[in-house]
């Protein structure tokens, strides 16, 4: 058996192991991954990406939702060939992993600011890395508000964080809404994220926004944020495009002359306004 230590070739993954699998929602699972010798595969900054593969099936880029001493977490929604296979995988499955790729959330620029995180569905996955970072460096940031919505109560990702962990943190509020509730047991807000966001009426004063979710949610949230007086330069989002190489070579994730895998995935709305509208 050959141990793979081929990081010098950026297109070749290292072989890692799935050490834990947690079901978040009916179609989202979080996969915990370590190297074969039980170490953290690499140390990403919030917002960065990892190219994750089941070797015989395929490779795809995912945001890294959390990291610990000796692991990386990926929350992955079932949407295609690879993710179908991943959802069938069990603990102990060996996978390929390469990265970290892309730029990071502007954790330095955001220091001293209040933070408003807005997520929809699986869009909370990339945002979560920054939320966790901000909570770990609690003194560097002001108030933290997390606005999150999903289709239904059972589609809420990271329920433990949302309902138990995060609300306990100092000066941290979690605001959760669902599009609809057929169970009748949901006690919280029912309605789409943009309308809910509007009702919360955040002030732009000293506040940065991190926004991530389906395109339609982003579109209407931006209108709401504009109404509240937020400037494009204060609103940060992440983009998703099909990727193959992750290192700005294979061509397909370009938006204008930028590559999402290398120059993104994190952009401010101000930066996006200078790029062709093709995402």
């Amino acid at each position: 058996m050959s141990e793979c230590t081929c990081h010098e070739n950026p297109l070749v993954p290292q072989v890692c192991v799935i050490t834990d699998i947690k079901k978040e929602t009916p179609d989202v699972k979080t996969f915990r991954v370590s190297t074969r010798d039980g170490k953290k595969p690499f140390t990403p900054m919030p917002g960065q990406l990892g190219m994750f593969s089941i070797l015989p099936v395929g490779e795809a880029m995912f945001s890294i939702t959390a990291q610990g001493e000796d692991y990386l977490d990926f929350a992955i929604k079932k949407t295609g060939q690879l993710t179908d296979a991943l959802h069938e995988a069990e603990i102990g499955q060996e996978v390929g992993l390469r990265g970290p790729y892309g730029n990071t959330f502007p954790v330095e620029d955001c220091k001293g600011h209040d933070l408003l995180f807005i997520g929809g569905g699986i869009g909370l996955a990339p945002v979560r890395s920054f939320i966790r970072y901000a909570l770990e460096h609690r003194g560097d940031y002001g108030d933290i508000d997390i606005v999150y919505g999903a289709r239904s109560p059972e589609d809420l990702c990271f329920k433990e964080d949302l309902m138990e962990n995060w609300p306990k943190e100092k000066n941290t509020k979690v605001h959760v809404t669902v599009d609809q509730d057929l169970s009748g047991e949901w006690k919280g807000s029912v309605g789409f994220v943009p309308a809910y966001l509007e009702s919360l009426n955040f002030s732009p004063e000293g506040r940065k926004v991190v926004l991530c979710g389906p395109p339609i949610m982003i579109k209407f949230c931006l209108q709401t944020l504009a109404k509240c007086g937020f400037k494009d330069s204060e609103v940060i989002t992440t983009l998703e495009m099909r990727m193959k190489c992750g290192i700005g070579k294979c061509g397909r994730c370009n938006i204008g002359s930028k590559y999402v895998c290398l120059d993104g995935p994190v952009f401010t709305m101000e930066e996006l306004s200078h790029l062709p509208n093709e995402y």
Binding site: L11, L55, P56, G58, K244, C245, K249, C250, G251, R252
Partner: peptide, 22 residues
Amino acid sequence: CYCFDIDTTKDGAEGTKFRCWD
């Protein structure tokens, strides 16, 4: 034109990752 795709071929337990022009 340099765009490429990355894909896999499988033959039983053996697999090969290749890239090809796209």
